[in-house]
Design a protein around this nucleic acid. Structure first.
Length: 441
RNA sequence: GUGGCUGUAGCUCAGCUGGUAGAGCACCGGGUUGUGGUCCCGGGUGUCGUGGGUUCAAGUCCCAUCAGUCACCCCA
């Protein structure tokens, strides 16, 4: 069999990356649970009609089909792999509404699939870490304040470059455009969202062409989009534009609350950035995009927002707010640039050296004694020269090698070379060496 | 889905106008009958992405195909 070629868009990290990913997920999980989010895993597939409720995305859904299906039968199973965790979550909430306690807060860390052309940070299979809070009928705005703080705690617990979250509020924009007298505020949001890509002049052009905006209206839209402040002072600048609308006032109020809470609990995290839109039309309140310092070109590594109509059936409605961390996107960039790595490529903390084949049973007993106390231990694969055995450990980043001998056990820290006699029943490695850790490269 | 670029050793790549493959790093063995990293010596580990064509001869030229990659589209 010839050597398999890598399949682009389906990342598989090397052992060090695997350890990093595991630790990242563990850190996120710990932080989410610290805030009371309950663990949730949903199935990998959803009925196509669930997945396509938002339209325009059908091409990117991987559809399931049995190989055994009749070759002439073009139909599929009607099932597709989920492309995010919000849609499955909304479905889960509706399906189990009668059995859940509201407000319901959950976290969900699972792979997602999209049939896109892969590029850096855009994969066909990728890991997402979501937190969402949904309530029945109405969702208090303070949850829109809480979520970014959870994310900040989670991301800042990792040795990542600085993260900045840009926030805006749909009500603010929509109210502003309505107050301005534009015919289609949602379309205006979509056009203004392109400002970083096509520039202010082209945005003004499209506003005029598509919405029939006057010069003054287009100018006002650009003026709003330019506003970006690290504190609540954006409110004054919005007011200075002289547009009045009740929805606008609500939006400003909500955004001020988000920004001020973040200033207290996570200084430097948030920027009010009134050009942030997010592509989706289901957002109805705060919207979030997050950038990694030095990797802004990668796009947002954590996005989300408030949605009022995603999970609703008949007269039941479950408004929610959620944020989703693109774990694969972050790791792909940072592992690729060696800005993030693990202290070792295996869980092993101690390698027990094997003096000769006859002593393997003794070595196994020594290893078991260490394992019983939670110290990950393996016995050397073969009774090679000690130099070789030490190199086996060194290649993997295993910090300690234990040498069993006639007069007791010695343990060597192969980084410093320090070697001392120990009692295997009580010896304990330094806490930071017990498990592999993530370190900035 | 559209367009550009690229496929040679584990990795990064060289190989001029065609003459049956090379460097650095990595890796393996030895120097060092039992405590690594430095140093010295030795070793090439390859269907030149795949298939076809031109030619006495193809890594090199032509066609096709696959894959990778970047950009566009889209971004839940």
């Amino acid at each position: 069999m010839s050597k398999p070629t890598p399949l682009s868009g389906f990342p598989e990290w090397l052992p060090a990356g695997q350890i990093v990913e595991r630790q990242v997920v563990e850190t996120l999980r710990r932080t989410f649970e610290l805030y009371g989010f309950a663990p949730l895993t949903t199935r990998a597939v959803e009925p196509m009609d669930q997945l396509l409720r938002k339209g325009e995305t059908s091409k990117e859904v991987y559809v399931l089909r049995r190989l055994q299906a009749d070759a002439d039968d073009p139909s599929d199973s009607g099932l597709g792999l989920h492309f995010d965790l919000t849609v499955p979550f909304a479905r889960y909430v509706l399906e189990n509404a009668g059995k859940l306690q509201f407000p319901f807060r959950r976290y969900q860390i699972q792979p997602c699939w999209r049939g896109e052309r892969p590029q850096e940070g855009r994969y066909r299979e990728f890991l997402q870490a979501d937190i969402d809070i949904v309530d029945r009928d109405t969702l208090p705005a303070h949850y829109e304040v809480e979520l970014p703080l959870v994310i900040a705690d989670a991301l800042r617990a990792l040795p990542l470059p600085a993260v900045t979250m840009h926030v805006n509020n749909r009500k603010l924009c929509q109210g502003f455009y309505t107050g301005l007298g534009l015919s289609d505020p949602m379309e205006a949001i979509r056009i203004v969202d392109k400002i970083d890509k096509i520039g202010p002049a082209a945005v003004a052009e499209q506003l005029t062409a598509v919405l029939g905006a006057s010069d003054a209206q287009a100018k006002a839209c650009l003026a709003l989009a330019e506003i970006s402040t690290p504190d609540a002072s954006f409110a004054d600048r919005v007011a200075a534009l002289g547009v009045t609308d009740p929805l606008l006032d609500t939006g400003v109020e909500e955004l001020v609350a988000v920004v001020e809470a973040a200033a207290e609990h996570a200084p430097g995290l948030l920027v009010a950035d009134l050009k942030i839109a997010r592509g989706l039309d289901y957002y109805t309140g705060t919207v979030y995009e997050t950038f990694l310092a030095g990797s802004e070109s990668l796009g947002s590594i954590c996005s989300g927002g408030r949605y009022d109509n995603l999970a609703s059936s008949g007269d039941e409605s479950y408004p929610g707010v959620g944020l989703s961390i693109g774990v694969s996107r972050i790791l792909g960039r940072l592992l690729g640039r060696e800005e993030l790595t693990a202290t070792r490529t295996v869980p092993t903390c101690v390698l027990v050296a094997l003096p000769n084949d006859e002593s393997r049973a003794d070595c196994d007993r020594l290893a078991m004694a260490l394992r019983r106390r939670g110290i990950a231990t393996e016995v050397a694969p073969a009774a090679q020269k000690y130099g070789k055995q030490i190199r086996f450990a060194q290649r993997r980043g295993i910090p300690f090698v234990a040498f069993p001998g006639e007069d007791g056990v010695q343990i060597r820290d192969i980084r410093s070379g320090e070697q001392v006699p120990v009692d295997p029943a009580t010896w304990q490695p330094p806490a930071e060496d017990l498990h592999p850790r993530i370190v900035a490269g």
